[in-house]
């Protein structure tokens, strides 16, 4: 399933223009850059920028998650907890202990990465649904701690967060936020392309295929799985922290089960093992509910129906399906 679309431009074969255009490294990155640069020209106001910013945050998280789910084949149903924990760590450290913004952000990432590193070994030993269950369990424990420790986190009602301050400059303006997060998305995308096309990446894809085969070929399976798990958790924590700063408020449902499911759906809907797909999936699922509000009470009914139909008719995900279609047309 991770086959043709993400195939790197191989050295041995003669590369034609189509390979370059459709390669994630060149075509993908260039398109992403263009879209990110152009978007501010077409949107305006608090709300439209808010949606754009949420798309950027989700896309960055989903790319990292896709490395774990799409490439390494390890489903995580607790990823929102890493996002939420990153957010809460930043929120608590800056508002209750007066830490500087960046230090708090870093502390959140380190905390989550450490938890992920410690838990990686026992959790990643599990397979399939058992793995999903273990990540769900870990996520729920984090979520429950966040809701219970009211003195620290404000409990179920959430807590306010101060603005992001970087070297004496307070980031308030939506446009500034947009550029910061767009930059981060580009970096994440670049990083992911490099990981995917590196020997590590090939090892990861081997994992998704068959673990035993990967093991036999001398790939250190456990090591790479752990690495990707920690990376994706850390990225989620970073984005969670930035989200807390940006929105000025954080509530437990950002760490909840439904949010975890939503992140996985973004991965699958966009296309497993497709980095561009992750961005499209994140954008689709962030923007879609905003349009569905016209259905009023029928909103969730329609949302569920769209989810079902998309998976039935595009099981490989939005981008790989589209990609396959275009390739076929171009011959």
């Amino acid at each position: 399933m991770s086959g043709n679309m993400t195939a790197p431009v191989r050295g041995g074969r003669k590369t034609n223009w189509k390979d370059v255009v459709f390669s994630p490294r060149y075509g993908g990155l260039a398109t992403l850059l263009l879209v990110l640069l152009a978007t501010p020209l077409f949107i305006e106001g608090l709300y439209q920028f808010d949606i754009a910013i949420l798309v950027l945050i989700n896309a960055t998280v989903v790319i990292a998650l896709n490395l774990l789910v799409g490439y390494a084949g390890q489903v995580s149903l607790g990823h929102a907890a890493f996002f939420g924990l990153g957010g809460y760590a930043t929120a608590v450290l800056t508002t209750r202990y007066d830490w500087p913004s960046l230090l708090a952000l870093a502390a959140g990432v380190v905390l989550v990465a450490a938890i992920a590193a410690v838990m990686a070994r026992p959790i990643l030993r599990l397979k399939g649904y058992y793995l999903a269950m273990a990540t769900l369990g870990l996520g729920m424990i984090i979520y429950l701690i966040i809701t219970q420790e009211t003195w620290l986190t404000g409990g179920p009602d959430g807590m306010s967060v101060g603005a992001l301050e970087v070297f004496g400059y307070t980031v308030f303006d939506e446009l500034v936020w947009y550029w910061i997060l767009a930059g981060l998305l580009l970096v994440m995308y670049w990083l992911a392309v490099n990981i995917v096309e590196s020997p590590v990446g090939r090892a990861l894809r081997a994992l998704h295929g068959s673990e035993i085969a990967a093991d036999n070929s001398g790939v250190n399976v456990t090591h790479y799985k752990t690495l990707v798990f920690v990376l994706s958790a850390g990225v989620a924590a970073l984005m969670g922290g930035l989200y807390a700063f940006y929105s000025g408020f954080i509530a437990p449902n950002t760490a909840g089960f439904m949010h975890s499911i939503e992140l996985v759906v973004m991965v699958v809907l966009g296309g497993m093992a497709s980095l561009v797909g992750s961005i499209v999936g994140a954008a689709l699922l962030t923007i879609l509910p905003q349009y569905l509000v016209v259905f009023s009470e029928y909103e969730w009914l329609v949302y569920g129906l769209i989810l079902m139909l998309m998976m039935i008719f595009m099981p490989r995900g939005f981008v790989p399906t589209l990609h396959g279609l275009i390739r076929r047309v171009l011959g």
Binding site: L46, Q48, T254
Partner: peptide, 21 residues
């Protein structure tokens, strides 16, 4: 009106929408 489904972050986005849009 918008339905925030009891989620604080949704509420925030809808509040922005009500104000700006």
């Amino acid at each position: 009106y918008y339905d925030d489904a009891g989620a604080a972050n949704e509420a925030r986005t809808f509040a922005r929408r009500l104000i700006a849009q």
